[in-house]
Simulated assay, not measured.
Amino acid sequence: MTVKYLSTTALSKEIKIPAKDVFAILADYGLINREENNWILTEKGKKHGGIVKSHPQYGTYIAWNEEMKNNSIFQKLENEENLLNSTSLGKHFGISKFRINPILSELGLVQKDVKGWRVTPLGNLMGGKQFEHVKTGIPYVCWNPEILTKKSIINALKEVQGDSASEEKNESKNTTVEFREKFEAKHRSADGHYVRSRAEMLIDNWLYMSEIVHAYERKLPIEEDVYCDFYLPVGKVYIEFWGLENDERYKERKKEKIRVYEKYGFNLIELDDNDIKNLDDILPKKLLKFGIQAY
């Protein structure tokens, strides 16, 4: 069977990517080198199907096995063109590109790598795609443009900018809102949080005295209107205290919240009345499972 070879220019036409970009990609991957205004095929390039051919009019040139048009190095560029990087997101929301990834990390959509950022399972659900810089190998994440319509993302970024408008003002009446209206947050914890029960106050105080950063009633970074009792940014851990086990409506609410936590694979710590009596023994063990050391 005769192998068909394509010049780099012909290859660019086949894959519908400008020739200058194709040359740049091949060079970035070490398949060709630029020497004295000429492109030189490397040993790595030969292993990827490259050969040097001669033409009576144009001289020598590099050609590629036609299978090269299916190589993933070109497919990645094509797929990435329609996605948004952190810079694009920052411009859209009026936030510095250096703050976007830490915000997305707090929401559990990305996580810090040794260098760069990696998408999380939740980030995948939100349209995140993992990439690596060609030369450095540093990971980064791009996003489907649909992320710009996600209510959870929009509201989180508004909060960072100091916009007090909350989606809760537009929430329809549901069991979560009814519960929050019925049980007023009137118990003041040591760090100034106002919580809805003595048990929550003890949990909040324990976290504060253990110097563990935490948020109270943080909305989950999903489209459903669900709020956790406590959220720990370090470890991306959610804490739920189940206190009204004899209330049927509360039990239904608990069942639904657990379903949501399982659906998105969130890190969840569950506490009940018996645990509250032994927080010093119970909570450190539960936290350690998620890499959080209390003492």
Rank of each mutant, 00 (worst) to 15 (best):
V226H: 11
D225K: 08
Y238G: 01
P221G: 04
K151C: 06
C142F: 00
V52C: 10
T136Y: 00
R253Q: 14
A10L: 08
G49W: 02
K129R: 14
E14A: 08
I51G: 01
P233F: 03
A10S: 14
W143Y: 03
N205I: 03
D275E: 05
I25M: 10
P121M: 13
Y58I: 14
K115F: 00
K254M: 12
I154F: 10
A190L: 15
G127E: 02
Q293G: 09
N124D: 08
I292S: 03
T176D: 12
L89D: 00
D229L: 04
T120L: 06
D272M: 07
K173L: 14
G123F: 07
L287Y: 03
E270Y: 09
F266C: 10
H214D: 03
L279F: 04
G265E: 15
T9W: 08
V114Q: 11
H187W: 13
Y194E: 10
K236E: 05
R118L: 12
N70M: 09
S96Y: 04
I15L: 06
I25S: 05
S152R: 01
E211M: 11
V22N: 01
I73E: 05
N174T: 15
N101Q: 11
S164V: 10
I25K: 08
G128K: 00
L244P: 01
K4P: 03
K115T: 00
V119N: 02
R188D: 06
L84K: 02
N274R: 12
Q130K: 04
Q75M: 13
N82A: 15
Q293P: 01
F131Y: 15
D28N: 11
F266G: 06
I95R: 03
Y208H: 14
I73Y: 06
D229H: 03
S172G: 14
F93H: 05
K186E: 13
Y216R: 03
W64S: 01
L148N: 01
A294L: 14
K277P: 02
W206A: 06
N70S: 11
K53C: 11
K251Q: 15
K289D: 09
E223S: 09
D28R: 05
A156E: 12
Y58A: 13
A190T: 10
E35G: 07
D113C: 10
I282M: 07
N124E: 13
I51V: 15
R259A: 13
K257H: 06
V114T: 13
I222V: 15
S152C: 14
E167D: 14
I269S: 02
F230G: 02
R188I: 14
Y261K: 08
D113M: 08
K13W: 05
M1I: 07
V22Y: 04
L288G: 09
K112F: 04
H187T: 10
E66P: 00
L220Q: 04
D28P: 00
V160K: 13
E14Q: 11
V110I: 11
G59H: 11
R118F: 05
L31E: 08
E224L: 05
R249Y: 10
A185S: 12
Q111P: 01
K69I: 11
Y231P: 05
Y58S: 14
E211P: 01
G123L: 01
W64I: 03
K158G: 13
W117F: 07
H133K: 15
R99Y: 12
D113Q: 12
Q130V: 07
G49C: 05
L125S: 09
H55K: 09
T42W: 00
Q111Y: 13
K186G: 10
E184R: 15
L41S: 05
K169F: 15
